[in-house]
């Protein structure tokens, strides 16, 4: 019997074990290269800051995550995480609810589309970071300025995503709901919204990547706490032993949120992506 290749070529069908092994390989490689490099550099110069050793990073994590700060008495990593999550959460909530509303109405009502499409396209081209100074001047350097940056950075994307999704719903479906007695005001929220809800979640997932960029950028410029604030603060001391665990932590948070949203879509919307 001819053998199906496991790894190479268009016909490859990796088996279960090989699949896991292949998925792990890049991670192992990265960690291996890091610790090899770290060991090599530290053996030449024990005070080297670039690639700190594992025990050094563990110490920093204990200091930032589990020991109250001397000045404020707070657990810094927890405090940073909560303030950052509050900012990104508020920003995304705002942009997804407003994006949903505008995208939905643009897709359904042609009059509203004529009114807003060009404007939304125009706004979406403005580089959000370029107007950060304007936002800081207008809304202050506190939380509101940062939330507005996240909002302006992600909302046009969500509007356009929702608009395109609504546009793709065949006109027959709207006619069908009118023949079943739907009133005009029921079409967006009773007929179309439930159909695009999983798409909205997908859209939020994609815009979260951008939201993190805006969060960290704004925190790095003016803030008193937050994950982005911390890594840019300790950068002054070349404290890679703090930066690396923080980056891993941010990545982990991002991964968990993404995973959670995928899970919600899969479990609550079994009909999504099916014909």
């Amino acid at each position: 019997m001819p053998k199906v290749p496991g790894f190479l070529g268009i016909h490859a069908r990796p088996g279960f074990k090989l699949n896991i092994l292949l998925a792990l390989l890049p991670f192992l490689l990265l960690v291996g290269v890091y610790f090899f490099g770290s060991y090599y550099r530290l053996s030449i110069n024990p005070d080297d800051k670039l690639l700190p050793s594992l025990p050094k990073m563990v110490n920093s994590v204990i200091k930032y995550a589990f020991t109250p700060d001397e000045d404020s008495g707070k657990l810094l990593m927890l405090d940073d995480t909560l303030s950052s999550l509050a900012r990104i959460g508020t920003g995304i909530l705002l942009s997804s609810s407003i994006g949903l509303f505008i995208g939905l109405y643009m897709g359904i009502f042609r009059g509203f589309k004529s009114l807003s499409l060009s404007f939304v396209n125009f706004i979406s081209i403005i580089p959000p970071l370029a107007i950060l100074p304007i936002l800081f001047i207008t809304f202050g350097v506190g939380d509101i300025g940062k939330i507005m940056l996240i909002f302006i950075g992600t909302c046009p994307m969500i509007i356009r995503d929702i608009y395109i999704t609504v546009k793709k719903i065949p006109e027959e479906m709207i006619t069908k709901s009118l023949t079943l007695g739907a009133k005009q005001h029921q079409i967006p929220w009773k007929i179309i919204f439930p159909q695009i809800l999983p798409k909205l979640i997908d859209s939020v997932r994609l815009s979260l990547g951008a939201a993190w960029v805006y969060l960290i950028a704004s925190e790095s410029i003016a803030s008193t706490n937050g994950l982005g604030y911390r890594i840019f603060l300790v950068r002054r001391y070349l404290a890679m032993d703090v930066i690396i665990p923080y980056v891993v932590w941010i990545t982990l948070i991002g991964f968990l949120i993404d995973f959670g949203l995928i899970y919600v879509v899969k479990s609550r919307f079994p009909w999504y992506h099916k014909d």
Partner: peptide
């Protein structure tokens, strides 16, 4: 005039709502 419940319709596709 425009669609209302006086006139029902069955299409080849799209008659059913996928999320219900």
């Amino acid at each position: 005039m425009f669609s209302n419940p006086d006139r029902g319709v069955v299409y080849q596709q799209y008659s059913l709502f996928p999320h219900l």
